Simulated scan of single mutants.
Amino acid sequence: MQITIRNSRKEDMPQVYKLINELAIFEKEPDAVIITIKDLEDDGFGKIPQFHCFVAEIDSKIVGLALVYNRYSTWKGRAIHLEDLIVSDAMRGKGIGSKLLDKVVKYGYELGVKRISWEVLDWNEPAITFYEKNGANVMRDWNVVQLNEKAIINYISKL
């Protein structure tokens, strides 16, 4: 089995979208994905790309992805955020996640970032173990804070 890790292309976005939906189901949020394939194409391949995506490919089929974007740390400087590292359920345990993480870390190193950050669900013990085994610090004393679209609108309405 030959695994190829490469930069994604615009024409990969339908397969990327399928994996994103597979992850949403795995994370018990099957109805949470509101982006479209066109959003991915426009946002990833427009004049100012909003993300960089690597795909894992076997026999011309995308079986995994890692999607990152630029961040800035007031303490550390340049950083990237790993939004998702997804491996199709049927392909887990074959080293694909490791190869994708390798690519993300090399990418960050080449960019000269001081930090690569991401979140992991507290119940996803296989992912936590994988990340810790690879030297990541899973910071269990931090909480993720978000305003979703409805909360943003509600917030703005109070200004």
Rank of each mutant, 00 (worst) to 15 (best):
Y131D: 06
Q15Y: 02
E110M: 10
E29M: 14
V145P: 00
E83F: 00
M1H: 10
K47D: 15
W75G: 09
K150Q: 13
K133G: 14
K47S: 14
V87I: 06
K103D: 01
A151Q: 15
V113E: 04
G64S: 05
D12Q: 09
E27I: 10
V105N: 03
T74C: 11
K61E: 15
E29W: 00
L85P: 05
I20H: 11
M91R: 02
G135Y: 09
W118Y: 09
L19W: 05
V105K: 08
C53N: 11
A32W: 00
I156P: 07
Q2N: 13
Y72D: 00
V33F: 06
S157M: 03
I25S: 08
L147I: 10
L101H: 02
N154L: 06
L147D: 02
G77W: 06
I25E: 14
K38R: 12
Q15V: 06
T36N: 09
G44V: 05
I80V: 14
Y131P: 05
W75A: 14
T36C: 10
G46E: 10
Q2P: 13
A66D: 04
W75K: 05
D59E: 15
L111I: 00
N143M: 11
R115H: 00
G44S: 11
G77I: 05
Y131K: 09
E57S: 07
S60G: 03
G77M: 08
I86C: 05
H81L: 13
D102H: 12
D12P: 05
I96C: 03
Y155C: 10
Y69V: 04
V68G: 03
R115D: 07
D89Y: 02
L85Y: 09
F45S: 08
I153M: 11
L19C: 09
G108Y: 00
N154A: 13
E83C: 06
A79G: 11
V113M: 04
K18V: 06
I86K: 01
Y107C: 01
I152D: 01
V120F: 07
E125V: 08
D42C: 07
G44C: 04
V120M: 06
D141E: 15
N148H: 04
